[in-house]
Design a protein around this nucleic acid. Structure first.
Lengths: 222, 222
DNA sequence: ATCCTTATGTGACATTGTCACTGAAGCACG
DNA sequence: CGTGCTTCAGTGACAATGTCACATAAGGAT
C-alpha cells in the first residue's frame, strides 16, 4: 500500500485481510488542478475516491444557475456520494469540483465491489466513513428550509473568521455556500458593515467584531 | 426468525450465518398506534428498527414550529437515520412519528453492533438498505433551495392524485410535506381551484385535471 | 490610457413567509 | 336540537428573500 494512503487514512492500517491489501495496493494516485470538474450531475459513477490532498466541493444546482454547497470532501475524507452511487448503481445527483489542487487515490468500481464482498477491513472502513454524513445533510435541509439568511450568513462568517481575520472571497461565493442569491448576500453584508461588524473590499471581507457575528448566529438557535 | 420478518424482508433469507440468525430471532415485535412519537430530536438512539406494517414519517422542525417531511419509512424499509445514529453514536437530528398503526421489530444497540461485527449477511442487508437514501436527501435539498412552491405543490398533488381522485388531507399537512407555510399552500390551492384543476373542501381535495398539474410540475424541470 | 472582465451596488418588482385576525365546518354534549 | 369547542381555511398587511435589469467600480491585460 502506498505510504501516503496509510498516512492520511490511519484506519486503513487495520485492513489486514489479503483481499483488501491487494485492492489498496492497486489504487492509483491521480492529481487534479484546482477548479476541475471531478464529476457532473448525471455522470455514472465508476471509481471510489480517497482524497489525500486538497478539497473537493459538492454542489447542487438549480434551474436558474443558482448553486449550493452540499458538503466538502477534505483530505482524510472519502466521498459519501460516490459510495452511495456505487452501492445503488445510481448516477451522481450533484456535481463535484476541486477547490484546490487535489491528489486522490481511485479504486475502480469492480475492485470496490470486490472490497465490499471480500475484505471485512475495507468494508468497515468504507461504511464508517459513510455513516458520518447523513445527519449533516439533514441539518442542511432544516437550515435551508427554516433559517433566516442573515443568521446563516453570520454563522458562515463567524466560522471563517475563527481562523482568519481577512476572508478572501466574493459575495457570489458566499451565496453559493448558502444556496442564496448574490444580491441578497451583498445586502446583508452591507448591513453588517453598517453595524461595524465587518469591513468590505472587492474580493475581501475583514472581520471586525467576531463576537457580534457569533451572537447573531446563535440567536434563535435552540 | 419470525416468519413475518422474513416475509417482509426476503433479503433476510440470505442471512445464513449463525450470529445473524441468533440476533434476528431475538428481535422483538412491537406495535404502535397512529400518531405516536417514535423518536424525538436529540434522543439517543438505542434500537435498530425494521418496519413490517404501516409507515413512519421523519420530520425536521424549525424554530417557529414549521416542519418538513424528510422522508418516510414504509413497511419493507429500515430506518436510515437510525442506522446512521447507531453507527456514529449521534443523537437523532429529527423526529419520527407513526402515520398509521405500525408494527416493527426492534434490535437493541448492542445486538446491532454484534450484527455488524459478526454477521456478514446482516451487515450486507443493513448497508444495502442504507445506501439507497442519500441521493433522495440531496434531491430534497435542491428542491427546497431552488424550486418554486407552486411546482412542488403541483408535483405533490399529481403524485397523490395518481392513486386516488379524492385526497383526504388538510392544507397544513401539505405545507408540512413541503416545508412551507399553511397560508402559502392555501393560496396556491385556491389558485389551482380557480383554474379548475382541483376542487376544495374542508379536509379534502378533489383532483379534476391531473394532466394540468403534471404539466406544471414538469415545467422548468430539466 | 484603454479595453475587458469580474465584482459589487441598486431599484423595482415577484414570490414566499409571518402575523393577526376572521369566519366556517364539524363534533360533542347537554 | 341548539350551543359551544376545536380544527380548518381565508385574508390583508407587511417582512424577508429572490429575480431582473441595469449602473458603477476595481483591477488586470495590452
Amino acid at each position: 500500500m502506498d505510504p501516503l494512503l496509510l498516512e492520511r487514512f490511519p484506519a486503513l492500517g487495520r485492513v489486514d485481510d489479503s483481499a483488501g491489501q491487494q485492492i489498496l495496493s492497486s489504487a492509483r494516485l491521480i492529481s487534479l488542478p484546482a477548479n476541475q470538474v471531478v464529476f457532473s450531475l448525471g455522470d455514472s459513477c465508476d471509481n471510489y475516491l480517497l482524497i489525500v490532498e486538497g478539497t473537493v466541493k459538492v454542489l447542487g444546482r438549480g434551474v436558474n444557475g443558482r448553486e449550493i454547497v452540499l458538503y466538502r470532501i477534505h483530505n482524510t475524507d472519502s466521498c459519501v456520494i460516490t459510495t452511495s452511487c456505487l452501492l445503488s448503481h445510481d448516477c451522481y445527483p450533484a456535481e463535484g469540483i476541486t477547490e484546490t489542487e487535489v491528489k486522490a487515490f481511485i479504486i475502480p468500481r469492480q475492485q470496490f465491489q470486490q472490497a465490499l464482498n471480500n475484505s471485512p477491513g475495507l468494508r468497515d472502513f468504507i461504511f464508517q466513513a459513510y455513516s458520518e454524513r447523513l445527519s449533516d445533510l439533514i441539518h442542511l435541509v432544516q437550515e435551508i428550509a427554516f433559517e433566516r439568511i442573515d443568521l446563516r450568513l453570520a454563522r458562515q462568517l463567524a466560522l471563517l473568521g475563527k481562523t482568519q481575520t481577512e476572508i478572501h472571497c466574493t459575495h457570489q461565493q458566499l451565496a453559493t455556500e448558502l444556496g442564496s442569491a448574490r444580491e441578497v448576500i451583498s445586502r446583508q453584508l452591507k448591513e453588517f458593515e453598517k453595524r461595524g461588524w465587518i469591513g468590505l473590499n472587492r474580493g475581501n471581507i475583514r472581520i471586525l467584531q467576531l463576537q457580534q457575528l457569533e451572537k447573531l448566529a446563535l440567536s434563535h438557535t435552540e
